[in-house]
Amino acid sequence: MEKVPMTVRGEKLLRDELERLLKLRPQISAAIAEARELGDLKENAEYHAAREEQGICEAQIRDIEYKLSVAQVIDVTKIENSGKVIFGSTVTVVDVDTDQEKTYQIVGDNEAEAKAGRISISSPIARGLIGKEEGDEVVISTPGGDKVFEIDQVQYI
């Protein structure tokens, strides 16, 4: 089974969600039992809704447990600061053409959220940045054409 990189933050979020879902299980079971007592199960909307909610909850639990089982948690705060862009590092880049500055954290596929500045390790930007150092210029192919970025800062936070 191939391991999937994940940040400490990503692991904590998954564990918190798993804990929430596990606490929800008994509530769903109680709702099913309560709906069963109402009588005919064929036409019992509360029963069917509770069973559907149970199925969704169990699927989410299995999904999170799988993600955690294949996760390789990488804590960048414990890595010596070499100035190189690696998984988990936070990179500030400057668009050479526009002088616009952007900051990205390189995270696992499941943690990516572009609006929050977290980009997937498999994204074109992250692939172009990995292994580079502060001061390097990087050409990244984007749908709008090639962009040239200068790596301004690399942080391990």
Rank of each mutant, 00 (worst) to 15 (best):
M1C: 05
E2F: 12
M6R: 01
T7Q: 00
E11L: 01
E11Q: 12
L13C: 01
L13G: 02
L14R: 04
L14F: 12
R15G: 06
L18G: 02
R20M: 14
R20G: 07
R20C: 03
L21T: 08
L21E: 08
L22K: 14
P26V: 09
A30V: 02
A30Y: 10
A30R: 08
A31N: 07
A31P: 02
A31V: 05
E34C: 00
E34F: 10
R36V: 12
L38P: 00
L38S: 06
K42H: 11
E43W: 10
E46A: 15
E46Q: 12
Y47R: 04
A49N: 13
A50Y: 08
R51K: 14
R51L: 15
E52T: 11
I56E: 14
I56K: 13
I56F: 12
C57H: 09
C57I: 13
E58A: 09
Q60T: 08
I61W: 06
I61E: 06
I64T: 06
I64P: 01
E65Y: 03
K67G: 06
K67A: 14
S69G: 00
S69L: 05
A71T: 07
Q72P: 00
Q72R: 11
D75H: 01
T77Y: 03
T77D: 02
K78Y: 10
K78N: 09
I79A: 09
E80I: 10
E80D: 11
N81P: 05
G83P: 05
G83F: 09
G83V: 08
G83S: 05
G88V: 07
G88F: 06
T90K: 09
T92R: 00
V93G: 01
D95R: 00
D95V: 07
V96F: 07
T98C: 01
Y104C: 01
I106Y: 07
G108Q: 06
D109N: 10
D109W: 08
A112G: 05
E113M: 13
E113T: 08
E113R: 10
A114I: 14
K115F: 14
K115S: 15
R118S: 09
S120Q: 04
S120G: 05
S122P: 00
S122M: 04
S123K: 01
S123Y: 10
P124V: 14
I125W: 04
R127S: 10
I130P: 00
K132V: 11
K132N: 13
G135K: 04
E137M: 09
V139L: 08
I140C: 03
I140T: 08
G145D: 08
G145N: 02
K147E: 14
V148D: 03
F149S: 03
F149V: 12
D152W: 11
V154S: 02
Q155F: 06
Q155E: 15
I157N: 15
